[in-house]
Amino acid sequence: MPIIVVSNPKGGTGKSTTSLVLGTTLARHGASVTVFDCDPNKHLVAWRDGPSASAVKVIGHADSSNIARMLKAEAAERQFVVADLEGTASLLVASAILAADLVVIPMQGSAMDASQARRAISFIDDQAAAVGPRPYQVLFTRTKPGFATRDERAIRDTFIGAGVPMLKTDLAERAAYRSMFTFRQSLEEMDPTAVNGLDKAIENADALVAEIIESLRGMRKAA
Rank of each mutant, 00 (worst) to 15 (best):
160 I>Q: 06
53 A>V: 14
31 A>H: 15
97 I>C: 04
1 M>R: 13
160 I>C: 03
22 L>S: 15
81 V>I: 14
72 K>L: 10
109 G>F: 01
65 S>E: 15
37 D>W: 07
115 S>M: 10
196 N>S: 15
114 A>D: 01
83 A>L: 10
71 L>H: 10
27 A>D: 09
97 I>W: 00
112 M>D: 15
59 I>L: 10
20 L>H: 13
146 G>N: 12
127 Q>N: 08
214 E>V: 06
70 M>I: 03
35 V>Q: 06
92 L>I: 04
41 N>A: 12
168 K>R: 13
72 K>Q: 10
96 A>L: 02
217 R>M: 05
95 S>N: 11
105 I>E: 00
177 Y>D: 05
45 V>D: 04
163 G>H: 06
221 K>H: 06
110 S>H: 01
63 D>K: 11
169 T>L: 01
95 S>Y: 02
201 A>T: 06
64 S>M: 10
132 G>I: 14
114 A>K: 00
196 N>A: 13
39 D>N: 08
214 E>D: 13
67 I>L: 04
106 P>M: 09
67 I>T: 06
195 V>T: 11
159 F>Q: 00
198 L>G: 01
60 G>Y: 03
36 F>R: 07
49 D>W: 09
42 K>M: 04
42 K>D: 03
148 A>D: 07
111 A>V: 12
219 M>A: 14
48 R>T: 03
110 S>A: 12
145 P>A: 11
71 L>V: 04
157 D>Q: 15
39 D>F: 11
191 D>G: 07
200 K>S: 11
35 V>R: 01
40 P>K: 13
108 Q>G: 05
101 D>K: 12
30 G>A: 13
38 C>P: 00
38 C>A: 15
199 D>L: 08
60 G>D: 08
183 F>H: 14
25 T>R: 14
100 A>K: 02
148 A>L: 06
189 E>P: 01
201 A>I: 06
205 A>E: 08
218 G>P: 02
83 A>V: 02
66 N>R: 03
220 R>P: 04
131 V>S: 14
191 D>W: 14
40 P>W: 06
